[in-house]
Design a protein around this nucleic acid. Structure first.
Lengths: 102, 102
DNA sequence: CGCAACATACGACAACTATCGAACATTCGC
DNA sequence: GCGAATGTTCGATAGTTGTCGTATGTTGCG
């Protein structure tokens, strides 16, 4: 288990593409790189996608399971919630509700 | 009121110095630049401090009240909590508890 | 007014980051 | 084994960010 440093986690999440990636993973549970890219709607090269996934993995937000030619990526919800309670929920909740207090 | 974009907020918080600044502000409620720098334990030039405070202000995390030669800085807790419920609490909670599940 | 205190603005520089294309590695199927 | 599919790694480049020193602006005080 990594250090799960808050600064690193926030830095990893502070990118629209990676945020979309995390949301896609939260919705599906597990997905391989290509699926994530499609679901997150990221139109970038595969190397860029690989880079973003590495940032998320290095920050301890995701984990990767190798299976043949595929790399199945998923959120480390349990560890994340244990270390930073409410953080993931707060980030994922954004945009989910209409945010109209009136 | 600014756009309060989640990505910008996360990017603003993704810095040790700014995180310490936010914690100091959360503890005191309001402080002028020099006090913030001292409380957050930031040993940097004043221009750097001013830069960090501007990043926080631009992201919508803080607001500044001018009073003579002082600039009183404080968190925009209400707006922040309304826009991103739980986010500030999650960020501030880190390190507050021993984080020892055993 | 002149000076000190507080903070911001500007210019410069180094370090980091996002992005891309091409090359490489691994595995599956024929 | 060969080629296709899936990702990663490498090198390069452009843009962003953190830091600093200095200059500037504003206010309070004598």
């Amino acid at each position: 288990m990594r250090e799960l440093n808050l600064t690193s986690v926030l830095a990893a999440l502070a990118d629209p593409g990676r945020l979309a990636t995390v949301r896609a993973l939260a919705a599906t549970g597990e997905a391989c790189c290509g699926q994530v890219q499609a679901m997150a709607g990221l139109e970038c090269g595969k190397s860029t996608m690989s880079h973003h996934l590495r940032v998320l993995r290095t920050a301890g937000i995701t984990t990767t399971r190798v299976d043949g030619t595929h790399r199945w990526v998923s959120l480390r919800r349990t560890e994340l919630d244990a270390r930073f309670p409410g953080l993931l929920a707060a980030v994922l909740a954004e945009g989910a509700s209409p945010v109209r207090p009136f």
